[in-house]
Amino acid sequence: MPRDYSTDAIVLGSHKLGDADRVVTLFTAARGKVPTVVKGVRKIKSRFGGRLEPFTQLQVQLHEGRNLHTLTGADTVKTHAVIRDDPAALRAALGFIEMLGRATPDFEKLPRSYNLLVNYLLEMDAAALSVRSARAETGKSGQSENELRGNTFGNAAGRDLSASESRFVIITLGAELKLLLLAGFLPHLADCAICGSSGSLPRFSAEIGGALCENCGGESFRVQAETLVAMRGLLETPLAEAGSSDIDERTAREVWRCVREICRYHLGTDLKIEPW
């Protein structure tokens, strides 16, 4: 395989390296997740700087190294800046990026996961754009604007979600469930994971494998019937339609709890970012 190659990629995140460099995590179409050294990117005159913010879709040229690849060229396909400009959209999207980063190994080509990421960002972009348009139309400002877009980074508990926040969260939950499906972690949602009964399923256990009937409960937590219906619905619904799903906040928080528990069990790690 040639040591220099081109591919489509999406920026997941980065951390500093040395004085002026960064290691940027790219999710590429050709080789999956690729940790990439970008030299001099933190300098003001770097030609890459603005192109390597999270969610940016790029056409990149990479040079293969032993552990890290090196970025030699990048052209922007789509910046997705509108997601970064909206705190609620940003937080939700960072939550999905975190899960994708943890659920996928480095250097493994995963074309379906890449397509999911591309579609997810397009849907979040469209949702954030419509929120921005609505905000411009209403001409609201100050605190009212905050109510429309929500605040991010903590203090979410105990606060009602705005309509726009709910949309970002539901699109994100839909994408996370689809990612669990692709990763092979999808739990039983229509019948009991132990006895196969398809009656009432009031409990959930990631360790046992999903929804449980009351008799098989064991080490599990209680879920509403609506939560399982919502999870099945989000899995069957294209992402483009997920944003208009009628899911209330309590149900969304239960879906998130199930997703987090599945990740905790299968990946052995806690997701840090709640999508709201």
Binding site: I44, K45, R47
Partner: peptide
């Protein structure tokens, strides 16, 4: 950035 050529600026910065 002062002293740079517009030609080499990235899209996010130009926007």
């Amino acid at each position: 950035p002062v002293g740079a050529d517009l030609e080499y600026a990235d899209e996010a910065t130009v926007s």
